[in-house]
Design a protein around this nucleic acid. Sequence first.
DNA 1: CTGAATCCCCAACGATACTG
DNA 2: CAGTATCGTTGGGGATTCAG
Lengths: 143, 143
Amino acid sequence: MSFGNIKVTTSLIESINKGIDQWLADDESDACPVRDILTRVGDKWSVLVLMRLGRQPERFRSLMRAIDGISQRMLTSTLRGLEYDGLVHRQVFDTRPPSVEYSLTDMGLSLVGHISVLANWAIEHRSQIEDAHCAYNSSQADD
Amino acid sequence: MSFGNIKVTTSLIESINKGIDQWLADDESDACPVRDILTRVGDKWSVLVLMRLGRQPERFRSLMRAIDGISQRMLTSTLRGLEYDGLVHRQVFDTRPPSVEYSLTDMGLSLVGHISVLANWAIEHRSQIEDAHCAYNSSQADD
DNA sequence: CTGAATCCCCAACGATACTG
DNA sequence: CAGTATCGTTGGGGATTCAG
């Protein structure tokens, strides 16, 4: 079985999974990189910000205008989180009025690439997913 | 720049991103496959269930024992969601007591492959992310 | 064993107002 | 412009109970 340039085999997954569970389920220590990243990928605003910054560096107010529906508060905390993980770089220019430019780090750019792959997967499987929705609904209607 | 078998270039991202924003930000219609999938990937229980089922088909009670900390309620709704999207297949055996076996569909297996790639990315960048955390913390300490 | 239904809480988010 | 601080709401998820 092959999807794009990613070959998927049961044995591959086996080897990949070997040990992943413990990282994912590691409730005790908060130092679980897999959980952290997956959570960030699942975060609506983080992904939107990363995608924006994947185009070009951008300033706070500009990001706010570009990303529809985000509040000042959420944009701030989202950017803080991304900066915290080293995905986004924050550059302050000491001007009046102050201006701050956000940009992707190399690691951020790398992650955006992987997110894009996932996004493409979703788009490619869109119709299949919709079919599944219909199938599910009609199977429920039988009850 | 290259990561594993995924080549990441700005132009690639440009072309990939072309139009993704509208899919992501599509608040009006709920039919946004990208958001749906990313949300699912960001969901703690969904990923754990998918990883488990990536090994072998498994029954409800067995999954519950295997996935530490999940409640009956969440396992049920998680499985429903995965089934709804066509990622998981639900097979009912008409026995006494009833038994239900869950397994990955081909699409589910495919998604698990991509999630594994992302998980590996997180593991590979673990130290780099931790470094970023330290750098962030010490930069905050200056204030 | 596999669920559905109910209650309940709290953390996350939005809105608003204020500051350098 | 780029934030911080505070408050109010809400819905996601845990615990529990009931059902087939």
